[in-house]
Design a protein around this nucleic acid. Structure first.
Length: 552
RNA sequence: GCGUUCGUGGCUCAGUUGGAUAGAGCAACGGCCUUCUAAGCCGUGGGUCGCGCGUUCGAGUCGCGCCGAACGCACCA
């Protein structure tokens, strides 16, 4: 048990005693005991606001409650407890506690940052899911970075997670892809054909077409239009999907499952409609089939089967989410671009209509990305193909900077991505600032042997007493809790910020505390401390999908 | 018009589920390299947390109403 839980345990015992002794008259549910690291060092190592939280149910003033709890806690590892402000309880630990905890971390360092398995029902998270009709752009990049980081963080927090990519490989857009490639194909061989109105104008369509031509030449030229379209659709689809996977892999993003929309057509869709119909949620109007989604909170009812008998995109999505629910996950998470928010109500309504608990479907919205270069907004347009692709972004600023910049802001905030800043190799750039801390530590390790110094199993941690040492130690202690919170809030930016703060703490330590040339016991204790620091930085960067170079 | 998200120093953003004197970075200014990487460190100035009302011991955080921004509001995906 770590210190934090020991304190919580002691508080909760004290409360129990006070209740048993009739001091506290409990007239409600006890609030959770919240232990936090206080904003100021004078407020101790840990603090709780429990006395204030519980004032209402105990009908007692907070300071009095705090006194009663304090008088019932005696632990040899506690230096003192102080009551401050309106009723804060500040806990001051004996120094030994800190050194013991540090020793525990050091002994099990390889696992530091991996929290015990929560034995939860698997959480499924679906993200990116871009249509396989073009290249990924920066918006997808943000989704890819956020989704993969959330997966990593959830796993570190001990959740079982499965990631999935939903491939929209059915419907109109695939036909448009085929028509677009078909037109480029024919144009390449000198045919005077018009480019389709709804076609994809991007330069990547030429690339796809050229790859097909390189391999197969003009062998589809003489085929009847319909046959050629069919073949080109398959070829273009395969090519686009391969490109997607290539870019995602380069961006350190992988999926456990690639789910094809085609596998839903037509049986699973028909089945979903049938179930809805049996449950009385479907009606016919104007020749189409409608889902009565309005009664479950949607703005209006939605068509699921068109007048011409073709299912809408929503119908496929209903079948898809039904399938996800039936696979037995505990929680389903969808990471969507904010431009899809209008879609939430209808999907949730459909799930409710099917009899599932729609609360188990959590939809996270990712706000838009704006790119800035030279202080000016870089305009994006999918139609004209002038968008900046993820691939171009990676080439321009590098994978590490791109990922970190995508992750440093809350997903709820629109992101201004400064391309010039991301490219800078200086302190202005947070990515380099963090990586530099790691590289500095590695550099020290490269030199210790020459100085007749080595890492030992049981260093004298109690030699670490200066402020910058203690601050660094405390920052390290916060890490597991930070992972827990980042996981609970699906908030990668917490880890991004944490590792930045940790790096800052290390840089201060580096200034104040030398390792080479000081007393051997002290040097070994410091060496162990920076080994822990390096591990923690590397672990956190790894959660974000950012590399931790050993030299820069 | 309706909905979602956002509004915090000049700029970009955090803010630990309502707590202690609101924090970083950039920009500005001033210091620190003959010793482990100056891609670093230390310091100074800069805020009516969009506006108003409410909830309570306590509000940047919760509720309501305005104002502003982005994105949505299909038998497209």
């Amino acid at each position: 048990m770590d210190v934090k839980n020991k304190i919580i345990d002691a508080i909760s015992q004290a409360i129990k005693q006070a209740i048993d002794a009739g001091i506290f008259k409990n007239t409600g549910e006890l609030p959770e005991i919240n232990l936090e690291v206080p904003p100021k060092k004078e407020f101790g190592d840990y603090a709780t606001n429990f006395a204030m939280q519980s004032a209402k149910i105990f009908h007692t003033n907070p300071r009095k409650i705090a006194e009663e709890i304090k008088s019932r806690i005696s632990a040899d590892w506690l230096e003192k407890i102080e009551i401050a402000g309106a009723g804060f309880m500040n806990f001051y630990l004996k120094p030994d506690v800190i050194y013991n905890e540090l020793k525990n971390i050091y002994t099990g360092l390889e696992n530091f940052g991996q929290l015990p398995n929560k034995n939860n029902a698997t959480i499924q998270i679906e993200y990116v899911s871009a249509n396989p009709t073009g290249l990924l752009h920066v918006g997808h990049g943000r989704g890819a970075a956020a989704g993969s980081a959330i997966v990593n963080i959830l796993r570190a927090a001990g959740y079982n997670v499965e990631s999935e990519y939903y491939i929209n490989d059915a419907g109109n857009q695939m036909e448009n892809l085929a028509k677009s490639v078909n037109a480029r194909y024919l144009q390449h061989f000198g045919k005077d054909v018009e480019f389709p109105e709804d076609g994809y104008h991007g330069a990547d369509i030429f690339d796809t077409t050229n790859r097909i031509i390189e391999r197969d030449g003009d062998k589809y030229l003489a085929l009847p239009e319909n046959e050629r379209l069919k073949i080109l659709e398959d070829l273009a689809y395969a090519d686009k999907l391969a490109e997607l996977k290539k870019d995602l892999a380069a961006f350190k993003v992988g999926f456990d499952v690639w789910f094809s929309e085609r596998t839903l057509h037509p049986d699973k869709i028909n089945d979903a409609i049938k179930v809805l119909r049996e449950r009385g949620e479907i009606y016919e109007k104007d020749g189409a089939l409608w889902l009565a989604s309005m009664k479950y909170g949607d703005d209006k009812d939605r068509v699921v089967i068109r007048e011409n008998g073709v299912p809408t995109y929503l119908a496929a999505d209903i079948a898809y989410h039904k399938n996800k629910f039936e696979r037995g996950f505990g929680t389903l998470i969808n990471l969507w671009g904010a431009d899809h928010h209008g879609y939430i109500a209808r999907v949730k309504a459909a799930m409710t209509a099917l009899g599932f608990n729609a609360d188990n479907l959590k939809i996270l919205l990712l706000q838009m990305v704006s790119l800035y270069r030279g202080g000016e907004l870089v305009k994006m347009s999918k139609r004209t193909g002038e968008s900046i692709t993820l691939r171009e972004l990676m080439e321009e600023v590098g994978t590490d900077a791109a990922r970190y910049f995508f992750l440093m802001r809350s997903i709820d905030s629109q992101l201004d991505f400064d391309l010039d800043l991301a490219k800078k190799k200086s302190a202005d750039n947070p990515v380099y600032y963090i990586q530099y801390a790691h590289a500095r530590i590695c550099s020290i390790f490269r030199q210790v042997e020459e100085n007749n110094l080595q890492l030992i199993d049981a260093p004298k941690f109690n030699m670490l007493v200066t402020a910058s040492e203690i601050d660094l130690i405390n920052k390290i202690f916060e890490y597991p809790n930070e992972i827990e919170k980042a996981a609970a809030e699906f908030a990668p930016q917490r880890i991004a910020r944490y590792v930045y703060d940790l790096a800052a703490q290390f840089h201060s330590f580096y200034r104040d505390c030398r390792i080479l040339g000081v007393d051997k016991d002290l040097a070994q204790a410091r060496l162990a401390l920076i080994k822990i620091t390096a591990h923690t930085i590397r672990h956190a960067l790894n959660l974000l999908g950012v590399s931790a170079p050993t030299s820069m």
